[in-house]
């Protein structure tokens, strides 16, 4: 490339062909993340050992965070990584370590809904929801903004400040309550 021709590389990044490649790449990454979410979910609800189920849950949540990114919400995607992958999965892993549910696993007859009947139940729920989603015509409204992070912050402190305070109180009560419940009987 001629070094004095500054428009060459810029032209490559802005012309139509590159935009087409970028769209294709975005589509491929989206498909990978879709597969990650579904495979993680399958591991989370099917794995024999609960530690593997938690790992599958973390994988599923990473895929869900990527899907939030594709839905124009990088802030919520980051929060998903922080709260779900970083906090909830680790908390569940702690519970598995503390309660050790693997030690005395029951080998008795399974309940009536486990096995094929449970699969049929979940399949019917899924097919019903997919049919409802596909056959309904959703009306798109003209948007008034792009959903920027700045507007989320402004909304949390103005229109939704009451809900914000209530959620803070709920979280505080949950923390204190879980400490009280888990502390009971600690001395024995």
């Amino acid at each position: 490339m001629n070094p004095t021709d500054a428009s060459g590389i810029i032209g490559f990044f802005t012309n139509d062909g590159f935009a087409g490649y970028a769209d294709a790449l975005a589509g491929i990454v989206f498909l990978i993340m879709l597969a990650t979410t579904i495979i993680g979910g399958i591991i989370a609800c099917n794995a024999e050992r609960l530690v593997r189920a938690v790992a599958g849950l973390a994988l599923c949540f990473i895929g869900v965070a990527a899907i939030y990114y594709y839905l124009n919400s990088p802030f919520v995607a980051m929060m998903q990584m922080l709260i779900y992958v970083g906090a909830v999965c680790v908390t569940i892993a702690f519970a598995i370590m503390l309660a050790a549910p693997e030690n005395n696993k029951k080998q008795g007859p399974p309940g009536p809904l486990s096995g094929p009947l449970g699969l049929v139940t979940a399949g019917l729920v899924t097919i019903g929801m997919i049919g409802l989603a596909v056959n309904t015509k959703f009306q798109a409204m003209p948007t008034v903004n792009m959903g920027e992070v700045k507007l989320i912050g402004a909304g949390l402190l103005t229109s939704y400040s009451m809900v914000f305070e209530l959620v803070s109180i709920v979280l505080l009560i949950a923390i204190i309550g879980s400490l009280v419940i888990a502390r009971h009987g600690r001395s024995k």
Partner: peptide, 17 residues
């Protein structure tokens, strides 16, 4: 919406099994 329905179904399956 289909992805959400599939995740919901897997959650229901895990909950009953």
């Amino acid at each position: 919406l289909i992805l959400a329905a599939i995740l919901f179904g897997m959650g229901v399956y895990g909950l009953v099994t």
